[in-house]
């Protein structure tokens, strides 16, 4: 219906789906792309690999808990990790705006160096472009990555009734931290981005082999949007309980005052996994032994009660639908 791309096309919600499914996919359709997973699983010279790409535009580029460099490495590494791969190689592409401080660029590169070491990945190719002042927002980074596929039987089609939904830690921190630092609220709220590589967490979950159905990193659009992607066009429902969802007090306070639902707030170091309920408790216990997974929890289950919907059991006893939004959380109360 729109003639132009508006900001809401980048929110990860319904409009993003429209952009991808109705504008991009029809021309570029192929089996690998059509799956729209975090990364493509490919057969390259008889080796199975996962291949993924991500662009990073974030303002400010230094925020509590990280910066755009760390984010650029983690983003692609995490996409590969949740595909069941071990990340090996990254490309790095920088688009820098005229006037950008070299001092800051150095800090970002330093952060890229440190993070890739932690993730055990090599940056093996790259590109830099500089654009005129006013034609970019400081710095944009793209990374693409290749990982060796270790576990390949993940997918929406594996989800079945009774499965448990696991999140590896507190939700919404990255989105909250960005909001706080963008709006000078860091003094009032001690929020920190969760930006971190999730490879170790993914491996921990994948020990359970075919009991693991699917994993995703709930970045843009948050937990609610990712859960919707799991069940859309399926006969399944995901029902989660508000009281079971781990969330940092400070993040929660900030979200309440700003009027943001943390379930739609971005994460950059979390995994949402759907696993067979028989192993769910064990998975969580194992995750909790890892520092990044100490707040892991089973937050809900797969049912067939309300096909294709994600439902939140609220603390007040209601059952609220968490739908994929069109863009921002537009007020709707009349």
């Amino acid at each position: 219906m729109d003639d132009i791309i508006t900001l809401s096309y980048g929110s990860g919600g319904k409009k993003t789906s429209h952009l991808i499914e109705d504008i991009i996919l029809p021309s570029l359709s192929c089996d690998e792309l059509n799956k729209l997973s975090d990364g493509a699983v490919l057969d390259v010279f008889s080796n199975k690999i996962a291949f993924s790409t991500d662009s990073f535009v974030v303002s400010p580029y230094f925020f509590p808990g990280g910066d755009i460099g760390k984010l650029a490495v983690c983003g692609t590494v995490n996409d590969l990790s949740v595909c069941g791969a071990k990340p090996e190689y990254l490309s790095l592409s920088l688009i820098i705006e005229e006037g950008f401080k070299i001092e800051e660029l150095k800090k970002i590169i330093k952060s890229i160096e440190e993070t890739s070491k932690i993730c055990n990945v090599k940056i093996v190719t790259g590109d830099t472009k500089v654009v005129e002042k006013g034609k970019g927002d400081g710095i944009y980074i793209n990374t693409s990555g290749i990982g060796r596929l270790i576990y390949e039987d993940l997918g929406k089609d594996k989800i079945s009734e009774g499965d448990a939904v696991i999140v590896t830690g507190c939700i919404g921190d990255h989105g909250a931290a960005i909001m706080a630092s963008r709006n000078n609220l860091v003094d009032e709220f001690n929020v920190k981005s969760d930006c971190a590589p999730v490879y170790e967490l993914a491996q921990c979950i994948l020990q359970y082999g075919d009991k693991v159905k699917i994993m995703r990193d709930p970045t843009r659009g948050g937990v609610a949007t990712t859960l919707n992607e799991f069940v859309e066009n399926s006969e399944f429902t995901i029902e989660i309980s508000e009281e079971k969802i781990p969330i940092n007090v400070e993040t929660n306070n900030l979200c309440e005052i700003l009027g943001i639902d943390p379930l739609y707030s971005a994460n950059e170091g979390k995994i949402l996994a759907i696993v067979d309920s028989s192993v769910a408790e064990n998975v969580v216990n194992d995750l909790r032994k890892i520092e990044l997974g100490k707040d892991a929890a089973i937050i809900g289950y797969v049912t067939k009660n309300f096909p294709s919907k994600v439902v939140l059991h609220t603390n007040l006893g209601g059952k609220r639908v968490l739908s994929k939004l069109t863009g921002a959380q537009l007020p709707r109360i009349c």
Partner: peptide, 16 residues
């Protein structure tokens, strides 16, 4: 919450 609300108003944070 006054001070935060004020900040939200001044900086146009999540205002509809």
């Amino acid at each position: 919450n006054s001070s935060v609300i004020k900040k939200m108003l001044e900086n146009n944070i999540n205002i509809y």
